[in-house]
Design a protein around this nucleic acid. Structure first.
Length: 103
DNA sequence: GCGGTGACGGCCT
DNA sequence: AAGGCCGCCACCG
């Protein structure tokens, strides 16, 4: 029953994403590490893409390690800016100030 | 079973 | 974290 494990993975990811405070962003690897799947960061991204279909989760607060927003989803930048997240001219988030401190 | 791809990460420049 | 390169893991044809 791997399907159950898959749903558990989704639940863990969504739980972490739900914990991300406003005006802050987290990287896929950050979340992946919190759920014990540090090598499966890509899977986190895949789940996040489906997360918006699963429910109203702040998946827009999740970016890659470069601070870049998801491709094919330009509105994400707008949503983050509205929450107070600083974006650089090249389209990267100011991680130094806005990266979520999950400690 | 194989090869290519990706909402990625880490190291190097 | 600004850009380039290689490596990992899971999914798809």
């Amino acid at each position: 029953m791997k399907k159950v494990l898959e749903e558990e993975l989704i639940y863990e990811i969504l739980s972490v994403v739900e914990e991300i405070p406003e005006g802050t962003v987290a990287s896929y690897g950050q979340i992946a590490r919190l759920i014990g799947r540090d090598r499966n960061a890509r899977l986190v991204g895949r789940v996040l893409s489906m997360a918006q279909f699963y429910g109203n989760y702040p998946c827009h607060r999740v970016v890659n390690h470069a601070g870049r927003t998801a491709p094919g989803w330009g509105q994400q930048r707008f949503l983050l800016e509205e929450e107070g997240v600083i974006f650089k001219d090249n389209g990267c988030v100011d991680m130094k100030k806005c990266q979520w401190d999950c400690e």
